[in-house]
Every structure is written in structure tokens, then in C-alpha cells.
Design a protein around this nucleic acid. Structure first.
Lengths: 250, 250
DNA sequence: CGGTTCATTGATTCGCGTCAATGCAGGTGG
DNA sequence: CCACCTGCATTGACGCGAATCAATGAACCG
């Protein structure tokens, strides 16, 4: 870990607007065109930047825990984050994975409905909820954009309910691989081979399966030639049409 | 069904503002205090009413199908509606139940992400999406309220993912009964006995289970004295604390 | 009062979970 | 540079919870 010796998991590199402007001026922000910021004109963007702080996290670092007061919202600039809920006995459901350009906390609720943890080195652009809510009133296009993002998340959540409630293990994994591939493509990265920054057990907890079942199902799809597994964290989508067929029915 | 004899499943009783004002003037609307309308002051409410149409549906009537262009949004005024998604082979996942005061279509997407069907006689207050989106710009408090509602739905969706991905049949049914009870109470109705307007198979498709499993689990909870089943569609919550314990862990 | 629809109950099956062992890659220190 | 350790992935044997298949029962309706 080059930059700063880890004193805590949550390191603020610089503080406030100045640091943000220094470290990541919006001008050459890699995710500007895909994040919520895309709807802002230059003066509006300046106002967003003024309340933003850049944050770096190491793999495994916790951003916040379920039921913590929701003080911050963020844009993921780089890296990958997982969101999850726990039952008292430790069972876990991962409710989402965030990649660069994704927005964390659209719900605008008083407290977080899930915990969030960095899966890789992560760079975030963070806003205080209060300040952002204040800005919303003055930037109606941003508010409209948040509503749009919330709508997209709702649609994704409903797809996930269908997956969790009614799909088989094969169908779940196929759907998952296609989702990751599509989202990679949306960020301008190759749709295949797909990079999986999460462990098998994370995938299981996202799909409502066990590690073992995920692993077995990977092997099965590989044996039938639908996918290739060049490494543990890479998946070649060899027959996309077949994968889509599996994802949608049997 | 006093007002109009049923000629089709989808009956518009009167058209436009006048009819709406006649049949259900917002002044004595039963759900005004709990629906999205609660944030509107009288002049704003008048503008909402001006774009509203009252609609009545019979049990089993389809409001719209998944992937239809999303032309309308509605408030449920009376009755109960189910939302669901289908897989090509007919497997179904119910993604939500709507009761009076609930808003249908917060997502504001171009097309519906699910089908919607009336479970009982239903009264709706319907808005054209275009007109409502136009109004949003002029009623920022309404837009903020929609964002809030969308946030609540996201939280509920995440809870449902935890349920579908990680809970046992017992835990699912317990969670379901508590949810219905809580929502009834929020509308000022008794928290017990709870009224279930949906069939066992609807409950199954909501919880990711079969009819048979739902039925067996009802019987089991009844045998152990946690609930009572005075009729098919009524559930007495005899030991709420016990039900809550079951819902949250084992 | 017979027919239809839905809920319940029972017998059996099966997909996935559980438990357990082995394999494999990356990191560390001798 | 290699032996070892550690954490993760894979594979196998077995069991269980819920699905499936099938029959019966209960409520509603014309």
C-alpha cells in the first residue's frame, strides 16, 4: 500500500474542496460521463465539487454498517464495492455490487439499509447528505437524475427478486455473468473476458447460493463450453447466446 | 360496484378533471394523508387533481403488462394490486403488493418492469406520466416526495432480497405476515387479525415458495400457537413477539 | 345440490446445502 | 530459491428442506 500507512481503514487523502480539486478535478474525472454528474453543466459541477471529498479505501475496508446514520453519499470513481445485509445468525445477502460510475445511497434515507465494503482498492467521491440535499433544491436536473437512478435501481432490484425467488443455480449464475459483462461494457471495458473482483462466496451470497454450488456451476458451464475460466477471477464468455438462453429460462 | 355496470375490466368512470372532482374530490379522499399527495398544499393539490382520472377495476383485471410503454402512474385509493414478473416458461415472481395509499410507478421508467393485476375491486387515481413529469418541475416538493417513496421501495426491495436469498420458508412467512400487519396498521386498520386479499399461490410466488409449502407453513405456525386462522383469508397474530423472532433468525 | 376453485395433507423426489477432503496460488521467511 | 503456510476454489459423499405429484377436503356459486 504505497500512498499512506494505514492508521484506519478509512483514509481521507486531503480534506475538503481543495484536496478534491487537486486530486481529482472533475475535468478529467474518468466517470464524469457515466455518473450522476453527467447532467451537470460546468457551474453546477463546480458546486458539486465544492462539497466533495476524495476518499481512498483498501480491500476489505468498511464504508459504513447497516443502520448507521446515513451521513454520506458517494460516487464510486475506481474499484468495486459490495453492499450486504446480515441476519443475526450470520447469514448474508449481498444486495449489490458497485463499479466505477455507480452512485451509493440514492435512497436518501436517514440510515443505511445495508453495509458497504470495499472489494478492491477503491476511490470514492463523497458528499455529505445534508449538503447534497441542500444542493438538490438548487439543481433540479440533479434531483431528476437521482430519481432516474433510483428508478433504475428499482428495476434491477425487481430482476434480482425474480432471480432469487424463481431461478435455478444455473440460471442465476448465467444471469450474473451477463449482468457483470453488460456493466463492464457500459463502462467501456471489454464485455469478455469479464473480470470478477469478488470471491466465490460473495457471488454465492449475491445469488442466494453457497460457495460450493457456485463453484460446481462454474465448472458445469465450463465443461459444456459456454464459458472459459482462464483464471479464478476471469470468465470468458464463449457462447453469449447460449448464456442468455440459460439465464432466461432453462 | 355501485357507480357503473361492468362493460370491460378497465372502466374509466367519467373522464378528466371533472369526473375526478365529482367522484373523488381530494377533500375527502381517504388516502390523502398517507399517499404522495400528503406533501401538497391546496393549490398544488388542485393541479394534481386536474390531471387525475379515477379508475375502477374488478378482481383479476390487468392494469398493464411488463414491457408495455409506461403511460400512466397511479395512486391506489382502494383495494389491492399485485405486481409480478414472469419467466418464459411461466414461473412467476410477485415483486410487490399494493394497498390503499401506495403509489404505482415511482420508477418513472419508459416501460413497465412488471405486470400489474387487481386482486380485489380496486379504485385508482391515475395520472399520465407525461403530464405528471411536467408537473414535477413546478412542484419540487412532489418530486422530493417521489424520491423519498422510491427510497422506501428500494429499502423494501433489499429486505425482500434478503428474504428470498437467505431465509427459510418459516422465516419468509413470518416476515410476510408481519409486513402485511404493519402496513395495515399504517393505514389505520387493525394490526391483527390481518386480512390477506391474495391466494396461497400468490403468497408463494411472492415468497419464492410453492402453494403447498405456504399452506404447510401456515398449518405449522397455527399448530404451535403463533397464529390463528379464523378463515382462509384472515390471520390472527396471537404471539407477535414470537413471530418477530421467527422472522429475524430461526 | 353438483361443480368449480382453492386450501390442505400426504408420499416421494430432487436440487442444493452441509460436511469433509483435496487442490492451487500467492506471500513469507529461512 | 524453495519449503511452508494461508486463504480460496474445487470436488466428492451425503442429508435435508422444499418441490413435485397426487389425493382429499372445504368454501363458494349458480
Amino acid at each position: 500500500m504505497a500512498a499512506a500507512p494505514a492508521s484506519s481503514n478509512l483514509q481521507v487523502v486531503g480534506g475538503g474542496a481543495k484536496a478534491a480539486a487537486q486530486e481529482s478535478p472533475c475535468d478529467d474525472c474518468a466517470i464524469r460521463e457515466t455518473s450522476v454528474c453527467e447532467v451537470l453543466d460546468p457551474p453546477q459541477l463546480a458546486r458539486m465539487r465544492a462539497i466533495a471529498t476524495i476518499l481512498r479505501l483498501e480491500p476489505g475496508a468498511t464504508l459504513f454498517q447497516e443502520s448507521d446514520p446515513a451521513e454520506h453519499l458517494c460516487n464510486v470513481v475506481e474499484g468495486a464495492v459490495k453492499l450486504y445485509k446480515l441476519l443475526p445468525d450470520g447469514r448474508r445477502q449481498i444486495t449489490g455490487f458497485l463499479f466505477p460510475g455507480d452512485f451509493l445511497g440514492v435512497a436518501l434515507n436517514k440510515s443505511y439499509a445495508y453495509s458497504a465494503e470495499a472489494m478492491t482498492n477503491v476511490r470514492l467521491c463523497r458528499f455529505s447528505r445534508n449538503k447534497l440535499e441542500g444542493l438538490l433544491t438548487e439543481l433540479p436536473n440533479l434531483e431528476r437524475r437521482l430519481l432516474e437512478v433510483a428508478g433504475n435501481e428499482l428495476v434491477a432490484a425487481q430482476d434480482q427478486m425474480l432471480l432469487l425467488g424463481r431461478k435455478t443455480a444455473r440460471e442465476r449464475l448465467a444471469s450474473f455473468l451477463l449482468m457483470v459483462s453488460r456493466r463492464a461494457a457500459a463502462r467501456g471495458r471489454p464485455a469478455s473476458p469479464v473480470d470478477l473482483p469478488m470471491s466465490r462466496s460473495d457471488i454465492g451470497d449475491y445469488l442466494g447460493l453457497t460457495t460450493e454450488t457456485v463453484s460446481r456451476t462454474f465448472t458445469q458451464l465450463k465443461k459444456q463450453g459456454t464459458i472459459g475460466l482462464p483464471s479464478q477471477s476471469k470468465v470468458d464468455i464463449l457462447k453469449r447466446a447460449e448464456l442468455e438462453e440459460i439465464a432466461e429460462a432453462g
